[in-house]
Amino acid sequence: MKPPPAAQAAPVVVAFAAAWARPDLPADAWWRGVTPLCDDGFARALRTVDPARVPATRVTGRPVATQGPSGGLAVYEVATDAGTLTVTVAAVEGRWVVTGNDFVRAVS
């Protein structure tokens, strides 16, 4: 199967960041929002996240690629109202899926 177009990676990152930055949602609703964008293993790991502990409430910037997308892997940084969300995506079965994330709080 050929990899998905590189241009399709950033929209997946944007959708994930917007779904992730929703600490106001109940855990099940939050999880249903992020899961369709993730690979199975990462989706299972996100089951343990308490969305009330997610520090960001909104995305404030466009995704900036810090690696790729090439070779079926890409890493993006996305500015939020509380810091920088780093999202890793991989080409899996013809589409880009989120395989990991990290967050660095802004220093105020």
Score class of each variant (00 low, 15 high):
M1W: 09
K2W: 03
K2Q: 14
K2S: 13
K2G: 13
K2R: 13
P3F: 13
P4F: 01
A6E: 15
A6D: 11
A9T: 02
P11A: 03
V13T: 11
V14W: 12
V14S: 15
V14R: 15
A15M: 03
F16M: 02
A18S: 15
A19N: 09
W20H: 10
A21I: 02
R22I: 00
R22K: 11
P23W: 07
L25G: 01
P26M: 04
P26H: 05
P26I: 02
D28I: 04
D28K: 10
D28P: 09
W30I: 03
W31M: 10
W31D: 08
V34C: 02
V34G: 01
T35G: 00
P36Q: 08
L37K: 04
C38Y: 01
C38P: 00
D39A: 05
D39N: 14
D39C: 07
D40M: 07
D40S: 12
G41C: 07
G41P: 04
F42I: 01
A43Q: 01
A43T: 00
R44D: 15
R44C: 08
A45C: 06
A45H: 11
L46S: 14
R47K: 14
T48Y: 13
T48D: 15
V49C: 09
D50R: 09
P51W: 01
A52P: 04
R53F: 13
R53N: 11
V54E: 01
V54I: 13
P55F: 06
P55Y: 07
P55M: 07
A56K: 08
R58D: 12
V59C: 10
T60M: 08
G61K: 03
P63R: 03
V64N: 07
V64I: 10
T66H: 07
Q67H: 15
Q67Y: 15
Q67S: 14
G68L: 05
G68Q: 06
G68T: 09
P69T: 00
P69W: 00
S70N: 12
G71I: 07
G72M: 04
L73K: 14
A74W: 03
V75Y: 01
E77S: 13
V78I: 13
V78F: 08
A79L: 13
A79D: 14
A79R: 14
A79S: 14
T80D: 04
A82R: 13
G83I: 00
T84L: 12
T84N: 00
T84W: 04
L85H: 06
T86G: 10
V87C: 04
T88E: 14
V89H: 04
A90C: 06
V92F: 06
E93I: 01
E93N: 12
R95V: 12
R95H: 13
R95C: 09
V98E: 05
N101M: 12
N101Q: 14
D102G: 14
D102Q: 10
V104W: 08
V104P: 01
R105P: 04
V107K: 10
